[in-house]
Design a protein around this nucleic acid. Structure first.
Length: 666
DNA sequence: ATAGGGTTAG
């Protein structure tokens, strides 16, 4: 299929009136603080007399101190002879949570038990919430277990706590018990239980459970509830069931900004950026009263980044500015990522420099930006600057910086960073980090070391790890190790066609044709299809898409002629078509024709014809760039004096004057 | 009696 023309450039809604100056909220707070608080001394100067009036006073004192954030002083008053009431305990509990003090929380809890509030379901709810916020999930569970009168609030609080802590299965078990006991769910229960489905702790999918709960929800007449339906959309989105998310979304009788944002995020996160942009356009066309918010814009920017749609991204950036959303951290980080992934690293850096406040995510955006462009040293430098600026790295920081090392071949640096994870930062490597290390060593042709890392892993190596190893085997043509890796992969993810294709490629390059046939049979038997290679190019705000051997493209003749011409010149310059990567049973000429029809070459030719001279050609590819396309593009950049920027699944290739920024290491 | 919820950055 050719050149599927993109949906119209996304229409932006008309700009909103300028946002209120950011400091207004601030002023209001200060004013309130100044005006409505009585001076402290009048509250604390009462001597302790054990009358009920004195007890009332003490309650009021503790409550005021809690509201003012003076937990320690409140506790001191509490330790005197007091007769705290429910409200006092409530404020104390909230205050402990806010101050993030587990020890104080525990002592308030003890105090409350001693004063006969141990069966108060209202306070039990508050305690569960507190323990949840303090990451003390066992304590939350204990409160629940000891409370005999479990109102729906108590159940819901525990569901929420467990879901937040990632204990999805436990929630589902308890939910079953709640139904068994005969307590009816309310709208909050459904929300928490749906959330729990996507955070199951033992790796087993709770999708089936989620669909069951979907049915409960409809049966109990909540099918029109915006919150619940939005949570359902999100649940299906997180399971990758885009179709189901779409069905729920379409059938919602009432949608608000959050519902639209959830669906846009669903597309953006599940590899359907076109649909995300299209839905954003629809949102602005269909609804006059719904303004996209910062959350919406983050997903829209992700979609632009995924498509490397720079022009589109710039439009969105303009909209973000007009709407005054440009001071919101997640939006700026998404902008940094968008510019980096659209090949505009300098713009990404500029946006980053202009931030007056940065969090770890902003830094990570920049680090991974340098990483995908192959600037390993620079990525490490930014990583170090982050630490110097006082922001400790997150696990994602390490994924970014290790990935950067891998793209740049910085093996020793990567190993040192990996070692520093636990030693200096107390971050324990996850599967993702191990996958980075395997990639780093594997690409550098240190396959034995990569295999050793896997053997010594302290957690179960997942498909990402074995996949990295298989990828490296492909680059360095190691059949034996490839067989080991793919055997594991076929077990772990039998439906991933990519693994079979990779193994078949490895066999083919080793001329092991019987094995190639076997793998292809396996692929057919499982009714899997190779993901076709595709390329995208944005010309004048429209995105054109190319598939290999694209006979329907109206310009195909022209593109072929151009490529044929170039290839003849190239051959005189020593270019040899890599016909051995074509596994069809064809003669040499046929194989060359296939190679020339690769989507990436078509996109380059299209860019040469349809863009202005001197303009950089920007192309995105959904798979790894093939070796033949890589060498051809190098050549074209020299002969046509054009800069060509190709982003493949892993990284950027910046072709200029016959050289690629990856220095042929990718 | 009171109370609590959905979408977001790498």
């Amino acid at each position: 299929m050719f050149a599927f023309q993109s949906p119209q450039p996304v229409q932006l809604p008309s700009p909103a009136p300028p946002p209120p100056p950011p400091f207004r909220k601030h002023l209001k707070c200060t004013a309130a603080r100044g005006s409505c608080r009585p001076p402290l001394c009048s509250l604390t100067s009462n001597p302790t007399i054990s009358t009920s009036a004195a007890a009332d006073d003490k309650n009021r004192v503790i409550q005021r101190l809690c509201e003012r954030g003076e937990l320690k002083r409140a506790l001191r008053v509490l330790s005197q002879e007091t007769d705290p009431n429910q409200r006092t305990y409530e404020l104390l509990i909230l205050s402990c949570a806010r101050q993030n003090s587990l020890s104080d929380g525990l002592s308030v809890h003890r105090h409350l038990l001693e004063n006969g509030f141990d069966q108060d379901p209202f306070l039990a709810t508050k305690l569960i919430n507190m323990y949840s916020e303090l990451d003390a999930i066992e304590n939350a569970r204990e409160v629940f277990d000891k409370t005999r009168q479990r109102t729906i609030y108590v159940w819901n609080a525990l569901f929420r706590a467990l879901a937040l802590a990632g204990h999805g299965h436990e929630v589902i078990d308890l939910y079953r018990r709640m139904n068994w006991v005969g307590i009816p769910s309310d709208r909050f229960t459904y929300n928490y239980v749906l959330k729990a489905c996507v955070v199951s702790e033992c790796g087993l999918s709770l999708l089936k459970k989620g669909r069951e709960i979907h049915a409960h929800i409809l049966r109990h007449g909540y099918g029109g509830h915006v919150h619940i339906m939005t949570t359902l959309v999100d649940m299906y989105a997180r399971f990758g069931c885009v179709k189901w998310a779409g069905i729920v979304f379409d059938e919602m009788p009432e949608k608000n900004v959050v519902s639209w944002s959830a669906m846009i995020a669903c597309y953006a996160k599940n590899g359907m950026p076109f649909e995300a942009l299209e839905l954003f356009r629809e949102m602005n066309l269909e609804t006059n009263d719904l303004l996209p918010n910062s959350v919406t814009m983050v997903s829209v920017l992700q979609a632009c980044a995924a498509l490397a749609a720079l022009e589109q991204g710039r439009l969105i950036h303009g909209y973000v500015l007009r709407r005054g959303l440009d001071s919101i951290l997640p939006v700026i980080s998404a902008l940094v990522t968008m510019y980096a992934r659209c090949g505009k690293l300098d713009r990404a850096q500029q946006v980053f420099d202009k931030m007056d406040e940065r969090d770890v995510v902003s830094w990570n955006s920049l680090i991974s930006g340098y990483g995908v462009h192959g600037f390993g040293e620079k990525a490490i430098q930014v990583f170090n600057e982050m630490i110097i600026s006082g922001i400790p790295p997150s696990p994602i920081s390490f994924v970014s910086v290790l990935g950067a090392c891998s793209h740049a071949g910085l093996v020793e640096e990567g190993k040192m960073l990996f070692d520093s994870m636990v030693r200096e930062h107390r971050i324990f490597p996850s599967v993702e980090h191990y996958a980075c290390m395997v990639d780093l060593l594997g690409r550098a042709n240190r396959l034995d070391e990569a295999a050793k890392i896997i053997e010594e892993m302290r957690i179960e190596p997942g498909p990402k790890v074995w996949g990295s190893l298989l990828g490296s085997c492909r680059i360095h043509r190691n059949v034996e190790l490839a067989e080991r890796a793919s055997a594991r992969l076929f077990e772990l993810e039998p439906m991933n066609a990519g693994n079979y294709v990779l193994l078949a490629d490895i066999y083919a390059e080793a001329q092991m044709w019987d094995e190639v046939r076997k793998v292809k049979k396996l692929l057919e038997a499982r009714r899997l299809q190779k993901v076709p290679g595709r390329c995208w190019i944005e010309v004048k705000r429209k995105i054109y898409s190319f598939a290999s051997v694209d006979e329907l493209n109206p310009q195909i003749e022209q593109l072929h002629a151009l490529l044929l011409n170039l290839s003849m010149e190239m051959k005189e310059d020593g270019y040899v078509p890599q016909t051995k990567i074509v596994h069809y049973d064809l003669d040499l000429e046929g194989k060359e024709r296939i190679l020339l029809g690769h989507s990436e070459k078509l996109a380059v030719a299209f860019g040469l014809i349809n863009s202005a001279k001197g303009e950089t050609i920007r192309i995105t590819k959904n798979l790894r760039l093939c070796e033949d396309c890589h060498s051809v593009t190098k050549f074209i950049s020299k002969y046509t004096k054009r800069e060509i920027l190709v982003r493949d699944v892993n990284r950027f290739h910046h072709f200029k004057d016959g050289v690629c920024s990856c220095r042929d290491y990718w």
